[in-house]
């Protein structure tokens, strides 16, 4: 299985996701901003991108839009953010995300969503 790419500028959040996902058997890769994320996603296919919105250099929406422009196999993407603006879910979708979860996310919620997006268990 290709790794789940975790994109978040907060190391603690990356660790949190990584711990939950690796415990459930998912391989993971992680980067700290949208630019690195794009590079990583183009270098190695991933089974899913978990993306934060507010990040330095390239934010989550810009990263997703850039990724969706690339002529590569398009992985599903899950946006997890503290942003609670009007229609945040719609904003995520239009940028190319396939699901949205509010931050902070509970482990079981994350695992359930990841399982759905990747088509089952790790």
């Amino acid at each position: 299985m290709n790794p789940v790419l975790i994109v978040d500028d907060a190391a603690v959040i990356r660790t949190y996701y990584r711990t939950i996902l690796t415990a459930a058997g998912y391989p993971v890769a992680e980067v700290g901003d949208g630019v690195d994320a794009l590079e990583a996603a183009l270098q190695q296919p991933c089974s899913l991108c978990i993306v934060d919105v507010n990040m330095p250099r390239l934010d989550g929406f810009a990263f997703l839009e850039a990724l969706r422009r690339e002529p590569v196999d398009q992985p599903p993407a899950l946006v997890i953010t503290t942003d609670r603006g009007d229609d945040i879910a719609g904003r995520c979708r239009r940028s190319g995300a396939n699901a949205y979860l509010p931050k902070p996310v509970r482990p079981e919620t994350l695992l359930a969503q990841v399982a759905l997006l990747t088509g089952g268990r790790a």
Partner: peptide, 14 residues
């Protein structure tokens, strides 16, 4: 938008 094809392909992947 110009990323519309990628967006659709990601939906298809899901």
């Amino acid at each position: 938008p110009d990323w519309h094809p990628g967006r659709v392909r990601a939906v298809v992947a899901v």
